[in-house]
């Protein structure tokens, strides 16, 4: 099972290596990892996508919690949440395909953020399924390269029922 886990950590040097070392040292896998500051600059948030059976995920969250610099661990599997990822795709279509590419970008709410004489860079965000679909559809037109940020996730606010 894939899990998105967010880890609130002290913003100190070496913390990233403690977390990634834990995964490599214990044979857990990391599918993606993103790190950034939070509203409190002394604290960073890591969003890790990992996979494993229940016992492995239990160990991962416990081991993360055991790290001295880890303040809080949330497994989003147990929490209603939204997830987003961003991708930058550099595509070099043939002249006759350009319109098609721009249309696709529009459908996926992509934006052209750079263009040269033969290539565009398109930015789009979404959940993983959307990003994968977009990449698949653009592929036939000639992707030069793409970069993905890895997932970030946040819990949903509760909606009061009337």
């Amino acid at each position: 099972m894939r899990h998105t886990i967010s880890v609130l950590v002290e913003n100190k040097f070496g913390v990233l290596s403690r977390v990634s070392g834990l995964f490599s040292g214990r044979g857990f896998n990391i599918e993606s990892l993103s790190v950034g500051e939070t509203i409190d600059p002394a604290v960073s948030l890591m969003t890790i996508v990992t996979s494993g059976d229940d016992q492995i995920i239990e160990q991962i969250t416990k081991q993360l919690n055991k790290l001295i610099d880890v303040i809080k661990v949330v497994d989003f599997m147990e929490v209603d949440h939204v997830e987003r990822e961003m991708v930058l795709i550099k595509v070099a279509p043939r002249k006759e395909d350009r319109i098609e590419v721009l249309k696709l970008a529009e459908i996926f709410r992509g934006r052209i953020i750079d263009s040269g004489s033969t290539a565009y860079t398109i930015e789009t965000t979404g959940d993983e399924g959307k990003i994968n679909a977009f990449i698949e559809l653009i592929k036939p037109f000639g992707i030069k390269e793409f970069v993905r940020t890895g997932k970030v996730a946040i819990a949903r606010e509760k909606v009061k029922k009337k």
Binding site: Q55, E58, Q59, K62, Q63, N65, K66
Partner: peptide, 8 residues
């Protein structure tokens, strides 16, 4: 005392 020992 170590939660990671349990069910490891």
């Amino acid at each position: 005392i170590d939660p990671t020992s349990i069910r490891k």
